[in-house]
Computed example of a mutant assay.
Amino acid sequence: MSSFYEFFAGGGMARAGLGADWQCLFANDFDPKKAASYAANWGADRLRVGDVAALTTADLPDEADLAWASFPCQDLSLAGIGIGLKGERSGAFWPFWRLIDTLGMEGRAPRLVVLENVCGALSAHDGKDFAAIGSALSGSGYRFGAVVMNAIHFLPQSRPRLFIIGVLNSSPIPHALVARSPDPVWHPPALVEAHSKLPACAQNAWQWWRLPSPPVRTSILADVVEDAPQGVAWHTSAETQKLLDMMNPLNRAKVEAAQKMGGRQVGTIYKRTRADGPNGKRTQRAEIRFDDVAGCLRTPVGGSSRQIIMVIDDLRIRSRLLSPREAARLMGLPDTYALPNNYNDAYHLAGDGLAVPVVRFLAEHLLEPLLAAAQATLKKAA
């Protein structure tokens, strides 16, 4: 059985994706509400609640095969203010990395490291933040590469995320897991450009990870929608009409087209502030999509980022907030997963989390083969 440390653990979605063949030795999160969800679903025996900067390697038991870190994205997000790795939240990467460095000095360096974040990490500070992460990895004795994986291949949610995978220099990398050049499915132009800006030491440690083609998704948004949702109520007719009135002609036409299709159609809405008219006046608009896919779940800051669904049954139009269970399903969590009772807490947990089947795909096709190769080498040496 492979083992791992789970940093910035949230509700344990990395743990859910890795699966039962992986043993969690240690988990940490700063947020007590998320930690409560982690404990409710996985137990608290391996969980330490608090700032990663307060941890020392004495808190980390044994020797883990993998260190997983979904470090905070707010300062790296394109929707944020762009402080980057110098920010208070995304800057939590550095005390985490000091732990990894110290483990190496103690002869306990994890064979694998996975760093997960938003794709804005590629371009933050013109690529300097990504270069800093690459230099940290190569400087600590890791070869590394990155992939951008979109949950849309697995779930009816558009959610691209960056995964940086490092392998200890002493561990073998099978040739079948490395490509000679970038694969546009997993290595989009933004990643290729970020790679070109890495310093020489990091470029020398770079690997173009090879993954198989993504599976054909078999689910659509309507599959996750609850008929009798818990934790949310349907809007009144007046509230639904207000949403329709907030749409520009293009989005209103989408609703009319969905009505003409007949049957049950499900769309998702985000409210966004847009510049309207020649004077550039900014107006809040409701923007809808009917492509059987939800928009990317976000953390509910100020209310505007809460996703709304609109259900059209022939001429009848209803709307409401996405329910907590629907948000969890869009992250690939099973209905047995215990969610917080508070709406915002549940939505925040999902919006800040990992798409479970994405983690499983990465583990199956890269992490587990890498560890198997390392274990085979150790057996030969013995």
Rank of each mutant, 00 (worst) to 15 (best):
G82A: 11
P95L: 10
E88R: 15
H175C: 05
S181M: 11
L103K: 02
W42R: 07
S77Y: 02
V358T: 02
R180Q: 13
L60K: 04
A124S: 15
T240H: 13
Y347R: 04
A275Q: 14
P72H: 10
G50N: 12
E63S: 14
A179Q: 07
F154A: 00
L155S: 00
G351K: 00
A58W: 10
V113Y: 01
A92P: 01
S237W: 04
R15V: 09
R306L: 13
K379C: 09
F144L: 11
I173M: 07
F130L: 02
I312T: 06
L85A: 01
I152A: 13
E326P: 10
G80A: 08
Q284L: 14
W42D: 01
P324Y: 07
S138M: 06
E193Y: 08
I220N: 14
R210N: 10
L349E: 03
A109D: 00
R252C: 04
G127V: 06
D276T: 14
W186P: 08
S196R: 14
D31L: 07
L112G: 00
F144D: 00
S305C: 08
D29N: 08
E106G: 01
I173P: 06
A53T: 05
A131C: 13
T336H: 11
R285N: 12
V301C: 10
W234T: 14
L47A: 10
G353S: 13
L330E: 03
W97E: 01
G107L: 04
G104K: 01
L362C: 12
L366P: 04
L378E: 14
I133A: 00
D62I: 02
V52K: 09
D101S: 11
V118L: 02
F8W: 13
P184Y: 11
F8T: 07
L112C: 03
L162Q: 03
A374R: 05
L297Y: 00
Q203L: 13
V358I: 04
L122M: 14
A228V: 10
A67Q: 05
K86Q: 15
P324M: 05
D227Y: 02
Q157L: 07
L122P: 01
L367C: 05
S181L: 07
A9Q: 03
A222T: 12
K242Q: 14
A373Q: 14
N344V: 11
K254E: 13
Y270S: 10
L244H: 07
Q241S: 12
D292M: 12
W208V: 08
Q74R: 13
A374N: 13
A376N: 15
P334I: 04
R289A: 13
E88V: 15
P160H: 06
W209P: 09
K271S: 11
A382P: 05
F71Y: 14
G134A: 06
C24S: 12
G351H: 01
V224W: 09
L362F: 04
L371E: 11
D345W: 11
F154Y: 10
H187K: 11
G332Y: 01
L168D: 00
Q203G: 12
A27I: 11
A40F: 03
R274V: 15
L112Y: 02
L211N: 06
R108Y: 05
E106H: 08
A146W: 08
V266H: 00
W97A: 03
L168K: 03
P110Q: 01
K242P: 03
L250H: 15
L349N: 08
F8H: 10
A202F: 07
M331L: 02
V52Q: 05
D245A: 13
A40Y: 10
G107K: 04
T299D: 04
L76R: 01
A374W: 05
D335Y: 06
L78K: 03
P278D: 10
G134R: 03
